[in-house]
Simulated scan of single mutants.
Amino acid sequence: MEPQNRISNKALTVWKISGLLGCSITWILSIAILVLTIIFDWTYWVFGAMIIISIIQSYLTIFLIPSVKWKRWRYEVRNTEIDIQSGIFVIKRTLIPMIRVQHVETKQGPLLRKYELASVEISTAATMHVIPALDLTEADELRHYISKMASVEEEDV
């Protein structure tokens, strides 16, 4: 049974804006190659190739990947474990036992803050797990709940 909770719908907007910012570098390079092509009278196939690459990258990073990523991202926090599902082409499932949780924190960058979202970072001895782009109140409640359950698990041992 896959986890039931989804991340916020606003994550799509944040990921699309991030993709747009990333694509802007490729578009700037394309314009620079066009200028160099005109100045040095290079063949136009180089510019054409850059435009095709820029269009494909823009479609993937602004439209396709954010929507697939949002559809795949799920999580569920139970009394004894945290179940996380993520991935775009390969779906990854992670079960984190509460007894292994060392600390939990929320994190916001400028885009997440603008859309009132936060990511929950769960640290274990070996790794860090992230549940991205939750509504701010949900992220705070989840952080408190996980830290409470992790403390309860440690006291029971």
Score class of each variant (00 low, 15 high):
Glu2Cys: 01
Pro3His: 00
Gln4Asn: 14
Gln4Pro: 06
Gln4Tyr: 11
Ile7Asp: 00
Ile7Ala: 01
Ser8Ala: 15
Asn9Met: 09
Asn9Ser: 10
Ala11Pro: 00
Leu12Lys: 07
Thr13Gly: 01
Val14Met: 04
Ile17Leu: 12
Ser18Arg: 05
Ser18Tyr: 07
Leu20Gln: 06
Thr26Asp: 09
Trp27Ser: 02
Ile28Phe: 15
Ala32Lys: 07
Ile33Gln: 03
Ile33Ala: 06
Leu34Pro: 05
Leu34Ala: 10
Val35Glu: 13
Leu36Lys: 10
Thr37Ile: 06
Ile38Tyr: 11
Phe40Lys: 12
Phe40His: 15
Phe40Trp: 14
Asp41Gly: 00
Trp42Met: 08
Thr43Phe: 10
Thr43Trp: 14
Val46Lys: 09
Val46Arg: 08
Val46Met: 14
Val46Phe: 13
Val46Ile: 15
Val46Trp: 13
Phe47Ile: 12
Phe47Glu: 10
Gly48Leu: 15
Ile51Thr: 11
Ile51Gly: 03
Ile51Leu: 15
Ile52Arg: 09
Ile52Asp: 10
Ile53Gln: 10
Ile56His: 12
Tyr59Arg: 00
Tyr59Phe: 13
Tyr59Ala: 07
Leu60Gln: 06
Thr61Ser: 07
Thr61Ala: 04
Ile62Trp: 05
Ser67Glu: 15
Val68Lys: 08
Val68Ser: 04
Lys69Thr: 11
Lys69Ser: 12
Lys69Glu: 12
Trp70Glu: 06
Trp70Leu: 06
Lys71Tyr: 15
Lys71Pro: 00
Lys71Arg: 15
Lys71Ser: 11
Arg72Trp: 09
Arg72Thr: 14
Trp73Ala: 01
Arg74Phe: 06
Arg74Ala: 04
Glu76Tyr: 04
Arg78Ile: 10
Arg78Asn: 14
Thr80Phe: 07
Asp83Lys: 01
Asp83His: 08
Gln85Pro: 02
Ser86Pro: 04
Phe89His: 11
Phe89Asn: 13
Val90Arg: 14
Ile91Leu: 13
Ile91Arg: 08
Lys92Glu: 15
Arg93Ile: 06
Thr94Ala: 01
Leu95Cys: 01
Leu95His: 11
Ile96Ala: 01
Pro97Thr: 05
Met98Ala: 03
Met98Lys: 01
Val101Glu: 03
Thr106Tyr: 10
Thr106Phe: 07
Gln108Arg: 14
Leu111Ala: 05
Leu111Met: 10
Leu112Cys: 07
Leu112Trp: 03
Tyr115Asn: 06
Glu116Val: 07
Glu116Gln: 14
Leu117Glu: 03
Leu117Tyr: 03
Leu117Pro: 00
Ala118Ser: 14
Ala118Lys: 02
Val120Gln: 03
Glu121Asp: 08
Glu121Asn: 03
Glu121Pro: 01
Ser123Gly: 04
Thr124Tyr: 06
Ala125Ile: 08
Ala126Phe: 09
Met128Trp: 09
His129Ser: 09
His129Phe: 10
Val130Pro: 02
Pro132His: 04
Pro132Leu: 01
Ala133Cys: 09
Leu134Ser: 01
Leu134Lys: 03
Leu136Gln: 14
Glu138Val: 06
Asp140Tyr: 05
Asp140Ala: 07
Asp140His: 06
Glu141Tyr: 06
Leu142Val: 07
Leu142Met: 11
Tyr145Val: 08
Lys148Ile: 07
Ser151Gln: 11
Glu155Phe: 11
